[in-house]
Protein backbone atom coordinates (compact mmCIF):
# COMPACT_ATOMS: atom_id res chain seq x y z
CA UNK A 1 0.00 0.00 0.00
CA UNK A 2 2.74 2.36 0.99
CA UNK A 3 4.85 1.55 -2.09
CA UNK A 4 1.91 2.19 -4.37
CA UNK A 5 1.22 5.55 -2.80
CA UNK A 6 4.84 6.53 -3.06
CA UNK A 7 4.94 5.50 -6.72
CA UNK A 8 1.89 7.55 -7.58
CA UNK A 9 3.07 10.57 -5.68
CA UNK A 10 6.38 10.44 -7.48
CA UNK A 11 4.76 10.28 -10.87
CA UNK A 12 2.57 13.26 -10.08
CA UNK A 13 5.59 15.18 -8.98
CA UNK A 14 7.41 14.69 -12.29
CA UNK A 15 7.48 17.88 -14.31
CA UNK A 16 4.64 17.95 -16.84
CA UNK A 17 4.05 21.14 -18.80
CA UNK A 18 0.64 22.60 -18.05
CA UNK A 19 -0.16 23.72 -21.60
CA UNK A 20 -1.97 20.95 -23.51
CA UNK A 21 -0.11 21.39 -26.81
CA UNK A 22 3.20 21.43 -25.00
CA UNK A 23 2.20 18.29 -23.13
CA UNK A 24 1.46 16.56 -26.41
CA UNK A 25 4.84 17.57 -27.82
CA UNK A 26 6.58 16.36 -24.68
CA UNK A 27 4.69 13.09 -24.92
CA UNK A 28 5.99 12.60 -28.45
CA UNK A 29 9.52 13.17 -27.31
CA UNK A 30 9.36 10.54 -24.57
CA UNK A 31 11.79 7.84 -25.64
CA UNK A 32 11.65 5.70 -22.55
CA UNK A 33 8.82 5.50 -20.05
CA UNK A 34 9.32 3.58 -16.85
CA UNK A 35 6.10 3.22 -14.94
CA UNK A 36 5.86 1.91 -11.38
CA UNK A 37 8.47 -0.78 -11.93
CA UNK A 38 8.97 -3.32 -9.17
CA UNK A 39 11.59 -6.03 -9.02
CA UNK A 40 12.03 -8.74 -6.43
CA UNK A 41 14.50 -11.61 -6.34
CA UNK A 42 12.63 -14.12 -4.21
CA UNK A 43 11.93 -12.31 -0.96
CA UNK A 44 14.42 -9.58 -1.67
CA UNK A 45 12.65 -6.48 -2.97
CA UNK A 46 15.12 -4.45 -5.00
CA UNK A 47 12.88 -2.01 -6.85
CA UNK A 48 9.75 -0.71 -5.18
CA UNK A 49 7.90 1.30 -7.78
CA UNK A 50 10.15 3.37 -9.99
CA UNK A 51 8.64 5.79 -12.49
CA UNK A 52 10.17 8.33 -14.82
CA UNK A 53 10.11 9.50 -18.42
CA UNK A 54 13.23 9.97 -20.48
CA UNK A 55 12.81 12.47 -23.30
CA UNK A 56 14.83 12.66 -26.46
CA UNK A 57 18.24 14.13 -25.71
CA UNK A 58 17.94 13.70 -21.96
CA UNK A 59 21.10 12.67 -20.18
CA UNK A 60 19.98 11.34 -16.84
CA UNK A 61 22.44 10.24 -14.20
CA UNK A 62 21.21 7.72 -11.67
CA UNK A 63 22.98 7.93 -8.34
CA UNK A 64 22.58 6.12 -5.05
CA UNK A 65 24.36 3.85 -2.63
CA UNK A 66 25.45 0.34 -3.61
CA UNK A 67 22.50 -2.00 -3.45
CA UNK A 68 19.96 0.76 -3.94
CA UNK A 69 18.78 -0.85 -7.18
CA UNK A 70 20.44 1.33 -9.82
CA UNK A 71 21.91 -1.51 -11.87
CA UNK A 72 18.80 -3.63 -11.43
CA UNK A 73 16.79 -0.75 -12.89
CA UNK A 74 18.85 -0.81 -16.10
CA UNK A 75 18.64 -4.59 -16.29
CA UNK A 76 14.87 -4.39 -15.87
CA UNK A 77 14.57 -1.86 -18.66
CA UNK A 78 16.22 -4.06 -21.29
CA UNK A 79 14.65 -7.19 -19.83
CA UNK A 80 17.88 -8.90 -18.77
CA UNK A 81 16.02 -9.17 -15.46
CA UNK A 82 12.35 -8.68 -16.33
CA UNK A 83 10.44 -6.56 -13.79
CA UNK A 84 8.06 -8.34 -11.43
CA UNK A 85 5.52 -5.55 -11.88
CA UNK A 86 5.17 -2.26 -13.69
CA UNK A 87 5.55 -1.23 -17.29
CA UNK A 88 8.27 -0.09 -19.61
CA UNK A 89 7.62 1.60 -22.94
CA UNK A 90 10.16 2.34 -25.61
CA UNK A 91 8.88 5.04 -27.98
CA UNK A 92 5.42 4.20 -26.76
CA UNK A 93 5.77 0.47 -27.49
CA UNK A 94 5.37 -1.91 -24.53
CA UNK A 95 8.75 -3.47 -23.76
CA UNK A 96 8.66 -6.98 -22.34
CA UNK A 97 4.90 -7.44 -22.12
CA UNK A 98 1.84 -7.33 -24.31
CA UNK A 99 -1.78 -6.78 -23.60
CA UNK A 100 -4.17 -9.28 -25.18
CA UNK A 101 -7.72 -8.59 -26.34
CA UNK A 102 -9.20 -9.16 -22.89
CA UNK A 103 -6.77 -6.64 -21.43
CA UNK A 104 -4.65 -9.26 -19.73
CA UNK A 105 -0.92 -8.65 -19.53
CA UNK A 106 1.41 -11.44 -20.61
CA UNK A 107 5.18 -11.61 -21.07
CA UNK A 108 6.19 -10.80 -24.65
CA UNK A 109 7.93 -13.28 -26.95
CA UNK A 110 11.71 -13.38 -26.96
CA UNK A 111 11.85 -12.30 -30.59
CA UNK A 112 9.82 -9.16 -29.85
CA UNK A 113 11.96 -8.43 -26.83
CA UNK A 114 15.08 -8.87 -28.95
CA UNK A 115 13.71 -6.44 -31.53
CA UNK A 116 13.29 -3.75 -28.87
CA UNK A 117 16.63 -4.52 -27.25
CA UNK A 118 18.34 -3.51 -30.48
CA UNK A 119 17.27 0.05 -29.79
CA UNK A 120 18.65 0.15 -26.26
CA UNK A 121 22.43 0.17 -26.04
CA UNK A 122 23.96 -1.16 -22.86
CA UNK A 123 27.48 -0.63 -21.57
CA UNK A 124 28.51 -2.86 -18.69
CA UNK A 125 30.82 -2.29 -15.76
CA UNK A 126 32.92 -5.28 -16.83
CA UNK A 127 33.01 -4.27 -20.56
CA UNK A 128 32.03 -7.82 -21.58
CA UNK A 129 33.82 -7.72 -24.91
CA UNK A 130 34.03 -11.12 -26.57
CA UNK A 131 37.64 -12.22 -26.14
CA UNK A 132 37.73 -14.54 -29.18
CA UNK A 133 36.85 -11.77 -31.60
CA UNK A 134 38.94 -8.86 -32.79
CA UNK A 135 37.90 -5.36 -31.84
CA UNK A 136 36.37 -4.86 -35.27
CA UNK A 137 34.38 -8.09 -35.12
CA UNK A 138 33.13 -7.29 -31.64
CA UNK A 139 31.52 -4.24 -33.20
CA UNK A 140 30.29 -5.73 -36.49
CA UNK A 141 28.87 -8.92 -34.96
CA UNK A 142 25.47 -7.58 -33.89
CA UNK A 143 24.85 -5.31 -36.91
CA UNK A 144 25.62 -8.23 -39.24
CA UNK A 145 23.81 -10.99 -37.32
CA UNK A 146 20.92 -9.01 -35.90
CA UNK A 147 20.37 -6.05 -38.23
CA UNK A 148 21.42 -8.14 -41.26
CA UNK A 149 23.75 -5.40 -42.40
CA UNK A 150 26.17 -6.23 -45.23
CA UNK A 151 29.64 -7.09 -43.90
CA UNK A 152 31.42 -4.32 -45.80
CA UNK A 153 28.91 -1.77 -44.59
CA UNK A 154 29.22 -2.97 -41.00
CA UNK A 155 32.98 -2.76 -41.27
CA UNK A 156 32.80 0.79 -42.48
CA UNK A 157 30.43 1.71 -39.66
CA UNK A 158 32.70 0.03 -37.12
CA UNK A 159 35.68 1.98 -38.38
CA UNK A 160 33.76 5.24 -38.13
CA UNK A 161 32.79 4.43 -34.56
CA UNK A 162 36.30 3.38 -33.64
CA UNK A 163 37.59 6.66 -35.00
CA UNK A 164 35.01 8.39 -32.86
CA UNK A 165 36.23 6.69 -29.70
CA UNK A 166 39.84 7.23 -30.81
CA UNK A 167 40.76 3.58 -31.29
CA UNK A 168 40.92 3.10 -35.03
CA UNK A 169 44.50 1.85 -34.80
CA UNK A 170 43.36 -1.00 -32.52
CA UNK A 171 40.76 -2.43 -34.89
CA UNK A 172 42.59 -5.74 -35.44
CA UNK A 173 43.70 -6.26 -31.84
CA UNK A 174 42.04 -8.69 -29.46
CA UNK A 175 40.37 -7.28 -26.34
CA UNK A 176 42.91 -8.91 -23.99
CA UNK A 177 45.60 -6.64 -25.41
CA UNK A 178 43.73 -3.43 -24.62
CA UNK A 179 43.65 -1.43 -21.41
CA UNK A 180 40.41 -1.27 -19.44
CA UNK A 181 39.65 2.20 -20.72
CA UNK A 182 40.22 1.12 -24.29
CA UNK A 183 38.04 -1.96 -23.82
CA UNK A 184 35.25 0.15 -22.45
CA UNK A 185 35.47 2.55 -25.39
CA UNK A 186 35.21 -0.44 -27.75
CA UNK A 187 32.18 -1.60 -25.76
CA UNK A 188 30.59 1.82 -26.26
CA UNK A 189 31.30 1.62 -30.00
CA UNK A 190 29.77 -1.88 -30.05
CA UNK A 191 26.56 -0.57 -28.50
CA UNK A 192 26.48 2.47 -30.81
CA UNK A 193 26.80 0.25 -33.88
CA UNK A 194 23.18 -0.78 -33.42
CA UNK A 195 22.16 2.87 -33.72
CA UNK A 196 20.23 2.77 -30.44
CA UNK A 197 17.53 5.21 -29.37
CA UNK A 198 18.80 5.14 -25.79
CA UNK A 199 22.21 4.33 -24.34
CA UNK A 200 22.41 2.88 -20.85
CA UNK A 201 25.65 2.87 -18.89
CA UNK A 202 25.92 0.59 -15.90
CA UNK A 203 28.77 1.99 -13.80
CA UNK A 204 30.86 2.13 -16.94
CA UNK A 205 33.91 3.52 -15.16
CA UNK A 206 33.69 1.71 -11.82
CA UNK A 207 36.15 -1.04 -12.65
CA UNK A 208 38.71 1.28 -14.24
CA UNK A 209 41.86 2.69 -12.73
CA UNK A 210 41.36 6.35 -11.89
CA UNK A 211 43.66 7.52 -14.69
CA UNK A 212 41.57 5.62 -17.25
CA UNK A 213 38.13 6.88 -16.24
CA UNK A 214 38.71 10.22 -17.93
CA UNK A 215 38.94 8.86 -21.47
CA UNK A 216 35.70 6.93 -21.05
CA UNK A 217 33.84 9.83 -19.43
CA UNK A 218 35.00 12.08 -22.29
CA UNK A 219 33.43 9.74 -24.83
CA UNK A 220 30.20 9.65 -22.81
CA UNK A 221 30.16 13.41 -22.46
CA UNK A 222 30.65 13.75 -26.22
CA UNK A 223 27.71 11.44 -26.88
CA UNK A 224 25.48 13.49 -24.63
CA UNK A 225 26.50 16.69 -26.41
CA UNK A 226 25.60 15.10 -29.74
CA UNK A 227 22.08 14.64 -28.43
CA UNK A 228 22.10 10.94 -27.56
CA UNK A 229 19.45 10.02 -24.99
CA UNK A 230 21.32 8.49 -22.09
CA UNK A 231 20.64 6.78 -18.80
CA UNK A 232 23.83 6.70 -16.78
CA UNK A 233 24.23 4.79 -13.55
CA UNK A 234 27.34 6.27 -12.02
CA UNK A 235 29.39 7.03 -8.97
CA UNK A 236 31.11 9.89 -10.78
CA UNK A 237 29.46 12.88 -9.17
CA UNK A 238 31.41 15.26 -11.39
CA UNK A 239 29.93 13.66 -14.49
CA UNK A 240 26.45 13.61 -12.98
CA UNK A 241 26.63 17.31 -12.17
CA UNK A 242 28.27 18.61 -15.33
CA UNK A 243 27.32 16.28 -18.15
CA UNK A 244 23.73 15.41 -17.34
CA UNK A 245 20.61 17.54 -17.44
CA UNK A 246 18.79 15.34 -14.95
CA UNK A 247 19.87 13.48 -11.86
CA UNK A 248 17.86 10.80 -10.14
CA UNK A 249 18.71 9.63 -6.64
CA UNK A 250 17.50 6.14 -5.78
CA UNK A 251 17.26 4.78 -2.27
CA UNK A 252 16.02 1.29 -1.43
CA UNK A 253 14.44 0.89 -4.81
CA UNK A 254 12.52 4.16 -4.75
CA UNK A 255 13.09 7.46 -6.48
CA UNK A 256 13.98 9.96 -3.77
CA UNK A 257 15.05 12.85 -5.98
CA UNK A 258 14.57 13.59 -9.66
CA UNK A 259 15.49 16.93 -11.10
CA UNK A 260 18.16 19.10 -12.68
CA UNK A 261 21.64 18.56 -11.20
CA UNK A 262 21.68 21.96 -9.47
CA UNK A 263 18.53 21.10 -7.60
CA UNK A 264 19.57 17.58 -6.61
CA UNK A 265 23.12 18.46 -5.66
CA UNK A 266 22.69 21.90 -4.12
CA UNK A 267 19.22 21.77 -2.80
CA UNK A 268 18.08 18.21 -2.21
CA UNK A 269 14.68 17.79 -0.62
CA UNK A 270 15.39 14.33 0.68
CA UNK A 271 17.34 13.87 3.86
CA UNK A 272 18.77 10.59 2.59
CA UNK A 273 20.01 12.22 -0.57
CA UNK A 274 21.72 14.91 1.49
CA UNK A 275 23.39 12.24 3.62
CA UNK A 276 24.46 10.30 0.53
CA UNK A 277 25.93 13.35 -1.13
CA UNK A 278 27.86 14.41 1.95
CA UNK A 279 29.44 10.95 1.99
CA UNK A 280 30.16 10.96 -1.74
CA UNK A 281 31.98 14.29 -1.72
CA UNK A 282 34.97 13.64 0.44
Amino acid sequence: METLAAGTARRDASPVPSDKGLAKAAEDAVVLRVSDVHKAFGDLKVLNGISFDLRRGDVMSVIGASGSGKSTLLRCINQLDPPTAGEIYLNGVPFGFRVDASGKRTPDSLSNINRLRQDVGMVFQQFNLWPHMSVLRNITEAPVRVRKMAKAEARELAEQLLAKVNLLDKRDEYPARLSGGQQQRVAIARALAMNPKVMMFDEATSSLDPELTGEVLDVMRGLGEEGMTMLVVTHEMGFAREASNRVMFIHEGRVEEDGPPEQVFDNPKSERCRAFLSKSYR
Partner: peptide, 13 residues
Protein backbone atom coordinates in the same frame (compact mmCIF):
# COMPACT_ATOMS: atom_id res chain seq x y z
CA UNK B 1 28.43 -11.06 -18.87
CA UNK B 2 29.52 -12.14 -22.35
CA UNK B 3 26.12 -13.75 -22.84
CA UNK B 4 24.31 -10.74 -21.45
CA UNK B 5 26.20 -8.45 -23.80
CA UNK B 6 24.81 -10.51 -26.68
CA UNK B 7 21.30 -10.48 -25.27
CA UNK B 8 21.44 -6.75 -24.68
CA UNK B 9 22.25 -6.28 -28.37
CA UNK B 10 19.21 -8.33 -29.34
CA UNK B 11 21.09 -11.40 -30.51
CA UNK B 12 19.15 -14.66 -30.78
CA UNK B 13 19.84 -17.57 -28.44
Amino acid sequence: GHIEAGRALGMSS
